[in-house]
Design a protein around this nucleic acid. Structure first.
Length: 225
DNA sequence: AACTTATCCAACCGCCGCTAC
DNA sequence: AGTAGCGGCGGTTGGATAAGT
C-alpha cells in the first residue's frame, strides 16, 4: 500500500474509540484509542473504510453517470461528488475516476472539447448562512477553477449586504442553471434519487461529514427535485 | 512456470481555510 | 494582527494482484 496497512486490531480499536467518543476531535483519537497513528490516518481509515453503510464493489451505471456529470460541473471536488453517491467515499470516487473514467473521457474529449469549454465549473458556497457555515475549504486550484472561485467570492461580497436570502437564491439559481445545462436535473432515475434522499435524511449523506452544510443542501435540493 | 507490465486502491502527504488564543 | 493548531481536502505513492508474454 501507500503506507503501513491497518491491522484488524487497529481497526477494532479505532471503531471502539469512535463509538465511545464520536466523530471529530481527531487529534485526540490516536491517544484515546491507543493507536500509533496520526490523526489524519485515523480519520481517513474511519471515513474510507470503517464507517457504517460504506458501499463496496463496482460502481453502478447510474453512479458512473452521476460522477461524470458532477465532475463536469464541479471539477475535482471528490467529497462533494461522493456526497451525492450514498455509501461511496471521496477516495473511492477519486480512484475510480483516475483508473477508469479519466482515460475514457480523455479519449472522447477531442470530440466535444468545444462544448466542455463553455461549461463553467461552479463552487456552491453559502458561507454566511447555517450553523456549519465557514468550514469548507477554498478547494483545489486547477487553472480552470481559479477564475470561478474568484467569481464566486465576488458574488458573496456583492450579496452580503443585501442579506442571506438574496445570496441564497442567486447561488441556487446558478447551481440549478448549471445542473440544467448539464442535463442532470430530472434525468436520473427516481429510485436512485430517492436512495440518495433517504440516505441524506438518515444522516448518511456526505462521505466526508456527518452534517450537510447549506451549500451542500442547496445542491441536493436541486439534484433531488 | 517465470517474468514483466498494467491496474487497482489504501494510505500518506502537503496544503488550505477556519478558529481560538 | 499574528499565529498555532485543527479538520478537511485533493494529489500522489507504492504494494498487491491480475493480465499478458
Amino acid at each position: 500500500m501507500g503506507g503501513v496497512a491497518w491491522t484488524e486490531e487497529e481497526d477494532h480499536l479505532l471503531k471502539k474509540c469512535i463509538q465511545q467518543y464520536g466523530e471529530g476531535k481527531w487529534h485526540r483519537v490516536p491517544l484515546l484509542a491507543g493507536l500509533n497513528r496520526c490523526r489524519k490516518s485515523c480519520r481517513l481509515r474511519w471515513l474510507n473504510y470503517l464507517r457504517p453503510n460504506i458501499k463496496r464493489g463496482n460502481f453502478a451505471e447510474e453512479e458512473v453517470e452521476m460522477i461524470i456529470k458532477l465532475h463536469k460541473l464541479l471539477g475535482n471536488r471528490w467529497s462533494l461528488i461522493a456526497g451525492r453517491l450514498p455509501g461511496r467515499t471521496a477516495n473511492d470516487v477519486k480512484n475510480y475516476w483516475n483508473c477508469h473514467l479519466s482515460k475514457k473521457l480523455n479519449a472522447l474529449e477531442g470530440e466535444d472539447r468545444q462544448v466542455s469549454r463553455e461549461v463553467q465549473v461552479i463552487r456552491p458556497q453559502a458561507r454566511n448562512i447555517g450553523p456549519s457555515s465557514g468550514k469548507r475549504r477554498g478547494q483545489s486550484e486547477s487553472p480552470t477553477d481559479k477564475g470561478v472561485q474568484q467569481e464566486s467570492s465576488m458574488s458573496s461580497l456583492t450579496f452580503d449586504a443585501d442579506g442571506q436570502n438574496h445570496m441564497l437564491e442567486t447561488q441556487q439559481d446558478n447551481i440549478y442553471a448549471c445542473l440544467d445545462q448539464q442535463g442532470i436535473v430530472g434525468e436520473l432515475s427516481m429510485d436512485f434519487q430517492l436512495e440518495g434522499f433517504e440516505a441524506m435524511m438518515n444522516g448518511e449523506g456526505s462521505s466526508s461529514s456527518s452534517q450537510w452544510d447549506w451549500g451542500d443542501l442547496l445542491l441536493d435540493m436541486d439534484l433531488y427535485k
